[in-house]
Design a binder for these strands. Structure first.
Lengths: 211, 211
DNA sequence: AAATTCAGCGAACGGCTGTTTACTGAATGA
DNA sequence: TCATTCAGTAAACAGCCGTTCGCTGAATTT
């Protein structure tokens, strides 16, 4: 059999995960381009040379982290877009979902925010590609809800990009809020601001035909 | 005299600038936390120890770069906000000014985008503080143009933050457009998208009292 | 049971890092 | 004119880095 787990492959996957987890933890207060290969293997407790059994590079590991980090977000968003409730309800659901996701996987979000414009090209490109896919999904989800005569495809795309960028913006704002002081007060303020901003965008969307 | 230039201080300022310029150039394709002190001094052509005559750290140099990078932007924005023209005119002026600034100082913008969420805390904080000042200025500039009864201070602030974040977003979009391919076609597309997004926000702003 | 695969090991390599030290010599001030 | 300041130097320091090598021994296959 080719893809049966087996004791062998199970152990390999285990240390691979350990490497990724250790890297993600170390990346909470430094950027990928300053992360050392030995630093990662030391944190896991394996020899430096063992790293090469799983990744060619640190950028290779970074790309793997990108897929893992944005994969879960992908599922979350589609679930929200499926809900056909009113504007304000969807906005609240979106902001709440983002907040919960940031609370659940802060290291992933921090990694994305940090490396989106970071110093490692392959990782940047992986993030850009994944966010592009995000925008596609948002666009196709919002399309049926918009009057087709005043919303040419490029304008829908424009709206979708604004949504995606605002979500990333909101996520990093949550992150900074919980990093600065762990009280819940700041988080509520960030959520309120994000909701209002989305409401404002939503308002503009409804009056788009005037322009 | 205390602050007359003199040959001595002039030379010192000269190599200080050389260090900052070299760092900025090297930071075009790596992040600050992976930048080496020796790397910078080697690029300038001075001994590594000379660095300490000007900066305590590389983060110290980073903070200096932040002030330089956002200082010029600061002047630009205030000039645009002073213009009391109509909505669309101001939007076009803003996008054009951002585009021109990115074309003029790409390395500064890239540095800000990269280190805004980068791995060096003091630099992150310096950027955050400067962007906060930006939001303050935008808020006080927009305040007299908004009906006071439906725009409490916190909502004005919310709008200002949205504007600032969108400007940063637009600037980095311009940067990536000119990095991917130097043709002007992509730059025009980015500009068109940015204008539409600002118009949409502007539309939402005018109908804010409905909410 | 014998042969093979292969994840992880330990050691070694050259090269680069930040920082300190004592110094030189030109600009400055008395 | 003579003493002082101080930007920049050259050398040395211990320490970490990524990468390569041959090897081991348990899981797998034949």
């Amino acid at each position: 059999m080719s893809h049966t787990p087996g004791v062998r492959q199970a152990q390999k996957e285990k240390t691979r995960r350990a490497l990724m987890d250790a890297a993600l933890r170390l990346l909470e207060d430094q950027s990928l381009s300053s992360l050392g290969l030995r630093e990662v293997t030391r944190a896991v407790g394996v020899a430096p040379a063992a790293f090469y059994r799983h990744f060619r590079d640190l950028s290779d590991l970074g790309v793997a982290l990108v897929e893992e980090s944005l994969g879960s977000l992908h599922h979350m968003i589609n679930a929200i877009l499926a809900g056909q409730d009113g504007d304000e309800e969807r906005i609240e659901a979106t902001v709440d979902a983002v907040a919960e996701h940031v609370r659940g996987y802060p290291a992933h979000i921090r990694f994305i925010a940090r490396e989106r414009h970071g110093g490692v090209r392959p990782v940047r490109q992986a993030i850009a590609a994944e966010l592009d896919r995000f925008a596609d999904e948002v666009a196709t989800a919002f399309c049926p809800q918009l009057p087709a005569e005043s919303w040419p495809p490029e304008d829908v795309r424009m709206l979708a990009e604004l949504y995606v960028d605002h979500m990333v913006m909101t996520a990093t704002a949550f992150l900074e809020a919980q990093a600065d002081h762990p009280e819940a007060a700041d988080e509520r303020r960030v959520a309120a601001t994000a909701r209002k901003q989305m409401l404002l965008i939503s308002l503009g969307r409804h009056h788009w035909h005037d322009a």
